[in-house]
Amino acid sequence: MQQLSDVVRVQPVTGRMRASVQESVDAAEHLIYADEADVELAFQLADIIDAARDSGDEERLHKVSYGPMPTLHKVLTSLGLNPEGRQKLGLDDQDEDEDW
Rank of each mutant, 00 (worst) to 15 (best):
E23I: 03
S24D: 02
A42F: 03
H62T: 13
L41V: 08
S78I: 06
S65E: 12
R18D: 03
A46M: 03
I48Q: 01
V75S: 02
K88W: 06
P68E: 08
G67D: 15
G56W: 06
D26G: 12
D50Q: 01
G80H: 04
R60I: 12
I48G: 01
A27Y: 07
V10G: 05
K74F: 03
V10K: 12
Q2W: 00
Q94M: 11
Y66G: 08
Q87S: 12
V39Q: 05
T71A: 10
A52W: 03
V13M: 13
K63N: 14
Q22V: 00
L31G: 04
Q2A: 06
L72C: 03
D93M: 05
Q44H: 12
W100Y: 15
N82D: 09
R9N: 10
R16H: 09
G80R: 07
Q3W: 05
Q11V: 05
A19K: 02
Q11P: 03
R18E: 05
Q22F: 06
H73E: 05
M69K: 15
Q87L: 14
Q87D: 13
R18S: 13
D38A: 09
W100N: 15
P68S: 15
D95W: 11
R9T: 07
H30N: 03
Q3K: 14
V64K: 02
Q44Y: 06
V7G: 00
Q2H: 06
V25K: 07
A46I: 01
E98H: 10
G90Q: 04
P70K: 05
E36D: 13
D99M: 14
A37L: 10
G80T: 05
E36C: 10
E98D: 15
L91E: 05
S24T: 08
E58G: 00
R16P: 00
V64S: 04
L31V: 00
G90T: 07
Q22K: 13
V75H: 05
A27R: 15
L61R: 09
A52F: 01
K74A: 01
V25S: 03
P68F: 00
S20G: 11
V21H: 05
Q11M: 08
L45Y: 04
D99H: 15
P68D: 12
R53G: 06
Q11L: 15
A19P: 01
L79S: 05
M69Y: 12
D50F: 02
T77G: 03
L76H: 01
L89Y: 02
E58R: 14
L76F: 00
L79N: 02
L61Q: 13
T14F: 09
D92E: 14
P68V: 08
G56F: 01
H30T: 00
R16F: 05
Q2L: 04
V75I: 04
D95F: 09
H73T: 09
H30D: 02
E29H: 09
M17W: 00
D54E: 15
E96V: 13
I48V: 12
D57F: 06
Q2T: 09
S5G: 08
D47A: 15
